Simulated assay, not measured.
Amino acid sequence: MRLIKNAIKTFIAYALHYSGLLSLIKNNRLRDRVCVLAYHRILPDAQAAKTNSADAIITESALFRKHLRWLKDEFHIIDMEELQAILLDNQPMAGNSLLVTFDDGWRDNFEHARSALTAEGVPATIFLPYNYIGSGEVFWQEEMLARLTQLNESEAEADQSLLMELAAIEAGAGKELLRRAVTQLKTKPYAEIYQTLERLRAHQPQSAIDMKLDAYMDWQQVNQLGKERISFGSHALSHRILTQIELDEARHEIVESRSLIKEKTGKKIDTIAYPNGNCNPAIEKIVDESGFRLGFTISRGYVAKDSNPMALPRFNIHTNNSSSKPLFLCTVLNIF
């Protein structure tokens, strides 16, 4: 069924592209609105096959370079300062305007995205989760999947029993089932998530997993990017979903991340991307009162002059929704 659905999407995308209808749709939808793209990880195919990250946040590196060329051909690319001027200072908006952003500050942004952005002359903003930059720590999702995979591949009865208990999956299950089990935990209280992770850590030696591929930049790399056409925003401190923690904790995450990232980079930090894209009026109020000028979700849609500056939409981009120019444009133009 998925193959049939993808084939139909591909047919429609190519038909719209080669008929010229995509250009008409683009010019109509972006006549007085800005499109903001949200990337996460940029990896070569060989590394993408080994990472513990979900497919929905991975863009293959050669494809990413093509994206930038397509964007330059089809859109008026702006940077974050220009977007702020449009929304907050009533500056004019050029048609077909588009902004590129990245969430999380993965090391591959430095190793793979940087060269493509530089070569194509495309500016970008990277939203940084302060606690992970230069710390050697990784997000709980990637670590948990790596550890569950180790249990899954083990023949030890104790390992198989723990896998069944924690993930309700029998040994030998595919990695996709393990990934779904980890994703389902995102709705659980953080105390429960971390308790599960601690049980895995106690059961396995640290040497059992290799997380180098899923690492984040250090501050030296961040500051090197800051010398180029890359700006930074906050992605909070711990990357916890702000609507799932106490309001005082959320306030601490928001206020401190702005101050600490500014201290580390020497640059003003006046934009934030909410972890997992989740916000609500109470969180938006704290963000506004904390001095941020813009806040970003991952809800699909375009930015208009009358958009709520504390809850701006973005389109999440990854290999599976952008593998050809027609599919990429259909995603960016909110057709699929």
Score class of each variant (00 low, 15 high):
residue 335 I to L: 15
residue 313 P to C: 12
residue 232 F to H: 01
residue 308 N to T: 06
residue 59 T to P: 10
residue 140 W to L: 13
residue 83 L to V: 13
residue 87 L to S: 00
residue 281 P to M: 03
residue 66 K to H: 13
residue 3 L to C: 06
residue 201 R to W: 00
residue 300 R to V: 08
residue 39 Y to F: 14
residue 14 Y to T: 02
residue 83 L to I: 06
residue 84 Q to L: 06
residue 49 A to K: 04
residue 97 S to N: 04
residue 294 L to R: 08
residue 225 L to A: 02
residue 294 L to F: 12
residue 20 G to H: 02
residue 257 S to H: 12
residue 182 V to R: 00
residue 98 L to R: 10
residue 58 I to N: 06
residue 183 T to Y: 14
residue 113 A to S: 12
residue 279 C to L: 12
residue 70 W to M: 04
residue 250 A to H: 14
residue 81 E to G: 01
residue 208 A to L: 01
residue 214 D to R: 03
residue 314 R to S: 03
residue 77 I to A: 02
residue 160 Q to I: 01
residue 257 S to W: 08
residue 192 E to N: 12
residue 27 N to V: 03
residue 196 T to S: 07
residue 157 E to Q: 14
residue 76 H to C: 13
residue 180 R to N: 04
residue 22 L to S: 13
residue 249 E to D: 05
residue 207 S to N: 07
residue 101 T to S: 12
residue 215 A to S: 15
residue 63 L to D: 07
residue 178 L to H: 09
residue 334 N to D: 10
residue 153 E to N: 08
residue 160 Q to V: 06
residue 42 I to C: 09
residue 92 P to L: 15
residue 65 R to S: 14
residue 62 A to D: 10
residue 306 D to C: 10
residue 260 L to F: 03
residue 23 S to G: 06
residue 107 R to C: 12
residue 290 S to K: 13
residue 161 S to A: 15
residue 26 K to N: 10
residue 328 F to T: 08
residue 283 I to A: 13
residue 225 L to G: 01
residue 39 Y to Q: 08
residue 309 P to F: 13
residue 129 P to H: 14
residue 8 I to M: 05
residue 121 G to H: 08
residue 259 S to D: 14
residue 295 G to S: 06
residue 231 S to R: 06
residue 40 H to S: 07
residue 32 D to N: 15
